[in-house]
Simulated assay, not measured.
Amino acid sequence: MTQKQSSEKLVETLVQTINPKEIAEESLRQTVEILLNLIEQLHTEVKELREENQRLRDENNRLKGEQGQPDIKAKKPRGFSNNHSSEEERKTLKNHSKGSKNAHLKIDREEILEYPLE
């Protein structure tokens, strides 16, 4: 999926960097403009079809009793800033150490076991 996204971004940046006004020949300039418009239309159509295809897959999976693709929303900042007085206190690291359990063990009996040598 990331390769598709990176190739889509590459195509978008490439299309945006092409300036047909820099082309001297009029017929070639018009051809490039037509092709760029066609690329943009096809790109948006492919994006819409992919979204529709995913919706249909999710619906098909839901009807089969499976779960669809999860709806994960981006984090949005709240209406207020996160600048609270306790913000610095939460950011400071506290030293946590795990104590030894052997110090709390109480030995109440000792047993000597013999292992046969064969």
Rank of each mutant, 00 (worst) to 15 (best):
I107H: 14
H96Y: 13
L28V: 10
L38G: 01
P70V: 14
K9C: 01
S86F: 02
L38V: 01
E87V: 01
E66I: 03
L14C: 04
A103N: 09
I72M: 12
K101C: 04
L113S: 08
E110D: 10
E8L: 15
K75Q: 06
E25R: 01
V32W: 00
R78F: 13
Q16E: 14
S7M: 07
K76M: 02
L56I: 15
V46M: 08
E52P: 00
Q67C: 01
N82A: 10
K101H: 05
D58W: 02
T2V: 10
E118R: 04
N60Y: 11
L38C: 00
R78K: 10
S100G: 03
K47D: 10
E8H: 02
E48C: 02
G79K: 03
L63N: 06
A24Q: 10
K73M: 03
L14V: 13
H104R: 03
V46E: 12
Q3D: 13
G65E: 00
K76I: 14
L14N: 09
E87Q: 09
P116E: 11
T2G: 07
L113V: 14
E89N: 09
S81F: 06
R29H: 01
R109E: 15
M1I: 15
T44V: 13
K98R: 13
M1W: 15
E87R: 08
Q16H: 10
R78D: 02
H84Y: 14
E51P: 05
N61R: 12
V11K: 12
I72P: 11
E45K: 11
R55N: 07
F80N: 01
T31R: 09
E33K: 04
G65M: 00
P20E: 13
T31H: 05
L38A: 11
L36Y: 05
N53I: 15
R50N: 11
N37P: 00
L35T: 02
K4S: 12
A74D: 14
Y115C: 00
V46F: 04
Q16S: 09
I18C: 11
G65N: 00
G65F: 02
S6E: 15
L28M: 09
N102C: 12
L10Y: 13
H104T: 06
E48F: 07
I72A: 08
M1F: 15
T31I: 04
L105Y: 07
Q41K: 08
G79T: 13
E22T: 01
N61F: 12
R55P: 06
R90G: 14
L35C: 06
I107Y: 15
L10W: 07
I18A: 09
R109D: 14
V32P: 00
T31D: 03
A103I: 15
K101W: 03
E51N: 06
E33Q: 09
Q69E: 13
T13R: 04
T31W: 01
